[in-house]
Design a protein around this nucleic acid. Structure first.
Lengths: 274, 274
DNA sequence: ACCCACTATCGATAACATCGATCCATGGAC
DNA sequence: GTCCATGGATCGATGTTATCGATAGTGGGT
């Protein structure tokens, strides 16, 4: 059923005139006749008495008219629904490297929660590979990945910052030949590990754990500078070499329409580069 | 807006598949695509993400979907409205000759009120001419008129009984040459008055008044037998002559659709002939 | 690397809504 | 009483559009 028919019904009930209704709706009079006749045939009841004094709703017409008001009101609410600014509320599932989770994202997420009380961010530490998979299949709304180049997938990846990577050791400790690296899935660690000839690095799932080993003089590690900045400043650690800078990409799935909550989260994360 | 689009939206949200939706709605898949695209263009928002795993409503889609449920529910109520038996309730404006008002209709209307508690009958004593005019311009829903022939108007007149008309006088009183007749507008009285050569009859608006004068031996009157049946039986009055029988017509306006209340009143009145 | 399932697109066709003109009924004026 | 004006119903023509059927393109699974 076309709601225009109901609109014609409504106007005709108000004006009582087919001609006036046609004028008001910018159609010709025969169209109004057709509309009402269609409704009457579809509903199987006469809706108006055509009297010389004007069209007057029948008993059935009065009832249909009341119901039509409801339908049109519901339709109007539907239109308003899409017009009105959607409430910025809901969950945002964000994946990020552990270094980001620990050192940069907490303040960003705290600010976000302050500005948008309805938004809840669920932060998951996750490496590049699993992050891309999760964004792809909907397990995550957003992901931050630390890579040299944009990942070659169907996903969107926009650079939002960069991360210095340092090869660090304890001061006054010679190179023991032992390495304490992060788990696989961390791109810069993996790249470094491939370049290590036959060494068998110890792998940790925690930045804190790897760093502690290095601080204790047990060996070397490859860590984002942000995670060792304090130690480099107070001399607890020293930078043996600077590895190539990695770029931080914000990854989204272009096939998925971002909710308002996800959009504000995106915006906040893109401000990382400032 | 066509509500079929909303139905398509609804089914697609449930099935998540354009093809399955098409099958369920007995259309081809491209039609479903067109429907959703029309909605999205009309509303100016993407409603579904087309993912390999199926179509999933966006945030806007979820809100539109909820609103669409309301619209479809309202439309369903509209359809139900016209299907459901209308409540037999409301006013019935009935006009009738004074004789009917006084002697026959009271029991009929009382029965009606008993059978249909929601129906209120407004009974007005009215002559043929004014009755026809009132039915014609909507002042009355129904009218009973006492005539020899169906009135030649655009109105419907169905015979529902007949009325014996008597020329009555008091027993043992000679014809004084004086007549106590009802007011103009009473057809049988008017016809009788035309046949009276030069006599100047007294006109009363009340049957009771005219009859009382006759009982008192002041002259003659022309009255429906039902109004003098008691007096004829106990000898208070005698029948001088029987005038031609008049037919009682139930008059309605065919251009007006009768409400349920009017219809039950009509049925009750047509049972007069039994 | 191939195949399969699914959706978007496009051209053709048929259906339908709208229009414009005309007919008809009614009511009022002269 | 006849005439005229008003307003709705009807009908044929026309333009739009919804639907179909076929095809291309995409991504996933084997």
């Amino acid at each position: 059923m076309d709601t225009r028919l109901l609109r014609t019904l409504q106007v005709l009930a108000r004006t009582g005139s087919f001609t006036a209704t046609a004028t008001e709706l910018h159609v010709v009079q025969s169209t109004v006749t057709t509309h009402i006749k269609l409704l009457e045939r579809h509903l199987g009841a006469r809706l108006f008495d055509r009297l010389p004094s004007g069209a007057k709703p029948t008993e059935a017409g009065e009832r249909v008219l009341a119901a039509a008001q409801e339908v049109l009101a519901a339709e109007q609410r539907l239109l308003d629904t899409v017009q009105g600014t959607p409430a910025v509320a809901g969950d945002v599932r964000l994946g990020a490297p552990e270094s980001m989770c620990a050192y940069r994202l907490p303040t960003i997420i705290a600010d976000l929660a302050l500005r948008w009380p309805g938004v809840t961010v669920h932060l998951t530490p996750v490496g590049t590979r699993r992050a891309l998979d999760a964004v792809h299949d909907g397990g995550l709304d957003l992901a931050l990945v630390l890579e040299d180049d944009p990942p070659s997938t169907t996903l969107d990846a926009t650079p939002v910052g960069s991360e210095r990577i340092d090869l660090v050791a304890a001061p006054n400790h010679p190179d023991t030949g032992r390495y304490f690296l992060l788990e696989e899935g961390c791109s810069y660690t993996d790249r470094f590990a491939r370049d290590l000839a036959d060494a068998h690095p110890t792998r940790f799932g925690s930045i804190e754990a790897a760093r502690s080993c290095v601080v204790a003089g047990l060996g070397l590690s490859v860590l984002p500078r942000v995670s060792v900045a304090d130690q480099l400043a107070d001399g607890t650690l020293r930078c043996v070499a600077e590895l190539p800078e990695s770029t931080l990409f914000l990854v989204t799935d272009p096939r998925r329409t971002a909710s308002a909550a996800v959009r504000v989260a995106c915006q906040a994360l893109k401000a990382l580069s400032d």
